[in-house]
Computed example of a mutant assay.
Amino acid sequence: MGQAYQLNLNNYFSDTDGQTLIYSATGLPSGLSVSGSFISGTPSTTGVNNVQVTALDPGGLSAQTSFQLTVNPMPSTPAGFTIVGVSTVSCDMLSAGLKRVTFTPQYGGVDSSPISFSVVNEMPATPNPSPYSLNLYTDNPSITLVAKRGDTRWPAMSTTG
């Protein structure tokens, strides 16, 4: 809640004729809307939202998908350095049971100290800036993110992709 969110729907829908699709969505939380090919905005309420997206081509053909979007509360005041959220850049289906997720962690309590980021048992610590990409199997999509600023290490969150 209270953090900018953006999802590019063109990563999930395409028209075989290359025509521009028109998107609509229902079930979005307050603060999010569809504009062009993006769901974007800043959610103003927490909770689990059942979102249904429809893509319509100029010929009147349509396709739909649905997903759950969970909006978590923001920490009232981060006590020092912490990961406060994650923005999904893309999520591509590589095979029936494998997705490639690209994401950017969002930090609170940032200063001029270097930040090192890792994913437990998936990605070693790196000082490289985001976005980061991981392959996740759909039967076990949970990961634990860890960030370190200077000498402060925070296991920030577990998330499901």
Rank of each mutant, 00 (worst) to 15 (best):
M1H: 14
G2H: 06
Y5R: 09
Q6C: 01
N8I: 04
N8G: 07
N10K: 11
N11F: 06
N11E: 12
Y12A: 10
S14E: 15
S14M: 14
D15K: 05
D17R: 13
D17T: 15
G18V: 07
G18K: 10
T20Q: 13
T20W: 04
S24Y: 04
S24T: 15
S24Q: 14
S24W: 08
A25I: 03
L28C: 12
S30I: 10
L32Y: 14
S33K: 15
V34L: 01
V34N: 10
V34Q: 09
S35C: 00
F38E: 09
S40F: 03
P43C: 01
G47Q: 00
N49K: 06
N50G: 03
V51S: 05
V51K: 07
V51C: 02
V51Q: 06
Q52M: 04
Q52V: 11
V53F: 01
A55E: 05
D57S: 06
G60S: 05
A63Y: 02
A63T: 02
Q64V: 00
Q64T: 10
T65F: 04
T65W: 03
S66G: 12
S66C: 01
F67H: 12
L69T: 08
L69R: 15
V71D: 11
V71S: 09
N72L: 11
P73C: 00
S76T: 14
S76N: 04
T77E: 02
P78Q: 02
A79C: 03
A79I: 05
F81M: 01
I83R: 00
I83L: 12
I83P: 00
G85W: 05
V86M: 10
V86R: 00
S87G: 10
T88E: 14
V89Q: 13
S90T: 14
S90I: 01
S90N: 12
M93F: 00
M93H: 02
L94S: 09
L94N: 11
A96E: 11
A96F: 08
G97M: 04
G97D: 12
V101M: 06
T102K: 15
T104Y: 01
T104W: 04
P105C: 06
Q106H: 09
Q106L: 14
D111R: 11
D111P: 12
S113F: 11
S113I: 07
P114C: 06
I115T: 12
I115N: 10
S116G: 09
S118Y: 03
S118P: 07
V119T: 13
E122G: 05
E122I: 08
M123L: 15
A125F: 11
P127M: 04
N128P: 01
N128Q: 13
P129D: 06
P129C: 01
P131Q: 13
P131Y: 08
P131R: 13
L134V: 10
L136P: 00
Y137M: 07
Y137G: 03
D139Y: 09
P141Y: 02
P141W: 02
S142C: 05
L145T: 09
K148L: 07
K148I: 11
R149G: 14
G150T: 12
G150K: 04
D151S: 15
T152V: 15
W154S: 02
W154V: 13
P155M: 01
A156V: 11
A156Q: 14
S158M: 08
T159Q: 12
T160W: 03
G161I: 06
